[in-house]
């Protein structure tokens, strides 16, 4: 087993994963790999095949064809070894409502085969880390949505697995709980845990992922770093605002030197030009300094992941998941709010 230590082998690999349910091709040939200690965001609308992909990689569902490796173990041939090296937080927080927070951690820890003495210490530590200490001895059914998610995550981490799968970890959370959870996840990555997270939220992938794989209808339609994907969706543009309208013609001419298309808005004294990125930006800044044009503001605007999604699928991510987000919002309403925490 020592041979796997310190090698550059990826923590997770999906190798041409296919899953058919009857005639439905839920996943139709998905491949990617996640280097150790990094975060991969699996992005796609509802029904794109994200959850099915995660279920196959976590050995809950057997691939129709293709395979994968988690921590070097084959998901089809060595499911037991895969389960020993990963944790899973499913789409619905699967905490046991009739158990206290502490008992939830203990249950899963014992099933992992952790010694009781170790468990006692690590449970306290996990409760502390996920700010559940005060609620540790309360039944999980009294927890708010955010607390359930944190408990679910704490439970997944009880055996400190090197790989963690998170299926839509923040769906249904209010913005504050979402940002808090992001912080927790960033902390995990600092501890060199490898994360695969699925999400419908572009912002989430942008915030957390080193690498994004976009899937739709069971196929990978794009992959790369968030920056690369944005690059693909369209070039960045330079936005220049001059102090005096009299400088507009000079500024337009100046921008034309690096971009064939310059858009001028005289009312706001603003000019927009396509640019290749920082290099063009620097050239323009230098030229502006030399020209003596008084600049009010100069900025580089990159396309957002929303633009990427629109570009790739021809539809907005937000309209695609409207149905689910409103459903989850309802769930959220029925639960006690986070602020009730002592």
């Amino acid at each position: 087993m020592g041979s796997e230590d310190g090698t550059a082998a990826p923590a997770v690999e999906a190798i041409d994963l296919v899953k058919h349910f009857g005639d439905t091709r839920a996943v139709d040939g998905v491949s990617f790999s996640i280097p150790r200690g990094t975060v991969l965001g699996l992005l796609g609308p509802n029904g794109a095949g994200k959850t099915t992909t995660v279920r196959m990689l976590t050995t809950l569902s057997r691939p129709t064809s293709g395979t994968g490796r988690v921590n070097g173990h084959d998901i089809v041939d060595e499911p037991a070894a895969v389960r020993r090296s990963m944790g899973l937080t499913g789409q619905a927080a699967t905490v046991d409502e009739l158990l206290t927070g502490r008992e939830n951690v203990r249950l899963i820890g014992r099933l992992y085969g952790l010694p009781l003495k170790y468990l006692r210490e690590s449970t306290d530590e996990l409760m502390e880390r996920f700010r559940l200490t005060d609620a540790a001895d309360r039944l999980a059914k009294t927890y708010s949505g955010g607390m359930r998610r944190r408990l679910d995550l704490a439970v997944s981490l009880v055996a400190a697995p090197p790989v963690l799968f998170l299926d839509e970890p923040t769906t249904g959370l209010d913005p504050r709980s979402r940002v808090e959870l992001w912080d927790v996840l960033r902390g995990l990555v600092r501890d060199s845990t490898t994360l695969l997270l699925t999400t419908q939220y572009l912002e989430e992938a942008d915030q957390l992922a080193d690498q994004i794989v976009v899937i739709d209808h069971g196929n990978v339609i794009a992959s790369g770093t968030p920056a690369q994907l944005k690059e693909e969706a369209g070039k960045a543009s330079v936005v220049l605002t001059v102090q005096s309208a009299a400088d507009l013609p000079a500024a337009e001419q100046l921008l034309h030197t690096c971009s064939p298309e310059v858009h001028v808005e005289p009312a706001s004294r603003r000019l927009t030009a396509q640019a290749d990125g920082l290099r063009d930006m620097t050239l323009i800044a230098d030229a502006l300094r030399d020209s003596g044009i008084a600049v009010e503001d100069l900025g580089l605007k990159r396309p957002s992941l929303d633009d990427v999604f629109l570009h790739l699928t021809g539809r907005r991510a937000e309209t695609v998941d409207d149905e689910t987000s409103s459903k989850h919002a309802d769930d959220q309403d029925s639960q006690p709010t986070e602020s009730m925490q002592p």
Partner: peptide, 10 residues
Amino acid sequence: QHAQARIPVE
């Protein structure tokens, strides 16, 4: 930094 499960699992 260990790549394997980081806790002795019985």
